[in-house]
Computed example of a mutant assay.
Amino acid sequence: MSGSGVRVVNGLMRVTGAWTGLLTDWLDREGLTAPRLRAQLARFAPDDVVPLPAWREALAQAAALRPGVPALGLQIGAGVQPRHLGVLGYLVAASDNLGEAMRVYLSYERLFYGANLAQVSWHGDEVDIAWPPAEQGPMFNEVSIGALVTFMSRQVDDPPRPLRISFVHEADSELRARYEAFFQCPVVFGDTHTRVRIPVSYMQIPMRHPEPGLRALLDGQAEALLRALPEPGDFDQAVQRLLLRVLPEGGVSVHRLAKMMNQSERTLQRRLGDQGLTWQMLLDRTREQLARQYLRDPALSVCEVAMMLGYSDQSAFTKAFKRWTADTPQAWRMRGARGSV
């Protein structure tokens, strides 16, 4: 949901699979069959990792369906809903005010892009949210910032306008007019960063539907996802995100994940080895991190935690947890999970 990208190797950046729904919904609104594009988008489940080249190619196909339409990315981004952003979208929507929503976004941006990208700076009574430049192209930027501003405006009553928005790419006067009509504020082109500038006073604007209970629950889920993610890298992120998706279903295996990633089991094992990992190491690490997070939630029984982690029964989970911590899940929880991390 951020701007023009980051100064990182493209292979380390991606988008979450939920983001592809933004494009699918646009196709539906436009009444476009687009079988090739729809098939490409359908490959990704909401929790999947979508490599950046795949997302750029999908945007290029969308542009080819509406040749000559200026600022098409803004039209696509305007259809954004919380479901397109995954847990990050619901966390933002459940926040108390815009200031808290911004802190949530900064804390969990990595769940969406695989890296923490946004930079915040204060200029007197104004705050600047900026994303370093990368060669993602104008349409990528249009969709991202169009979605960001649209999404936030829908979360408050009588939504305020940004003070100014900046883009890295250039635009002629006609395109500038379209951008300014969409954002209802001055738009600068040819900047060093993609930026959204707002008054500090906006931070106190209450959200339309704050839900502290839901926010706390989603915070726990998002934190578990973050803790389970390895350092940025498309391959191991892809493997762990698939694990997060299939663990509650049970029957998780290296063979199953290799098949889901369209590669052989030997190739998957070799690539894990290149990362200094074995399949069992990755599975144990993911399960342990998630177990510690889930056990902090008193609403979840140990049996439910075991099921969420894909164990056949509670005793199998207890045996594994004792191997990781030299403690049973019940004892670890009773002593206070917070102090046992």
Results as ranks from 00 to 15, higher is better:
residue 260 M to G: 05
residue 304 E to W: 06
residue 299 A to Y: 07
residue 278 T to D: 13
residue 276 G to S: 12
residue 288 E to L: 09
residue 295 L to R: 03
residue 319 K to Q: 15
residue 313 D to T: 04
residue 279 W to N: 04
residue 322 K to T: 12
residue 279 W to K: 07
residue 274 D to H: 15
residue 314 Q to E: 10
residue 292 R to P: 01
residue 262 N to M: 05
residue 276 G to F: 08
residue 322 K to G: 03
residue 274 D to W: 14
residue 264 S to L: 12
residue 262 N to W: 11
residue 270 R to G: 05
residue 259 K to C: 06
residue 304 E to A: 15
residue 288 E to W: 06
residue 262 N to V: 09
residue 262 N to Q: 11
residue 263 Q to G: 03
residue 276 G to Y: 09
residue 316 A to W: 02
residue 257 L to Y: 01
residue 275 Q to W: 14
residue 268 L to M: 14
residue 304 E to K: 12
residue 321 F to E: 03
residue 271 R to M: 09
residue 278 T to M: 10
residue 322 K to I: 10
residue 304 E to G: 09
residue 287 R to D: 01
residue 282 L to F: 01
residue 323 R to G: 14
residue 270 R to E: 13
residue 256 R to Y: 12
residue 301 S to P: 10
residue 262 N to K: 13
residue 259 K to G: 07
residue 263 Q to S: 08
residue 268 L to A: 06
residue 319 K to D: 09
residue 314 Q to F: 10
residue 308 M to A: 06
residue 298 P to V: 05
residue 298 P to H: 03
residue 271 R to G: 08
residue 279 W to P: 03
residue 283 L to C: 05
residue 284 D to M: 02
residue 276 G to W: 11
residue 285 R to S: 06
residue 279 W to I: 11
residue 292 R to N: 11
residue 263 Q to N: 04
residue 289 Q to P: 10
residue 305 V to C: 03
residue 282 L to H: 02
residue 305 V to Y: 02
residue 256 R to H: 14
residue 274 D to Q: 15
residue 317 F to R: 02
residue 301 S to V: 05
residue 309 L to Q: 00
residue 270 R to H: 14
residue 280 Q to Y: 15
residue 298 P to G: 04
residue 258 A to Y: 12
residue 319 K to G: 07
residue 282 L to W: 01
residue 314 Q to H: 06
residue 257 L to W: 02
residue 320 A to N: 06
residue 275 Q to L: 15
residue 289 Q to I: 07
residue 289 Q to C: 10
residue 265 E to S: 09
residue 258 A to H: 06
residue 271 R to H: 11
residue 288 E to R: 09
residue 309 L to T: 00
residue 267 T to N: 14
residue 273 G to Y: 13
residue 255 H to F: 15
residue 257 L to T: 02
residue 317 F to D: 00
residue 293 Q to W: 03
residue 288 E to N: 09
residue 306 A to K: 04
residue 312 S to A: 11
residue 320 A to L: 03
residue 272 L to G: 04
residue 318 T to Y: 02
residue 321 F to C: 04
residue 290 L to G: 01
residue 282 L to V: 05
residue 308 M to C: 02
residue 267 T to A: 12
residue 303 C to S: 11
residue 275 Q to E: 15
residue 307 M to V: 05
residue 305 V to F: 03
residue 302 V to S: 04
residue 301 S to D: 14
residue 256 R to I: 05
residue 307 M to S: 08
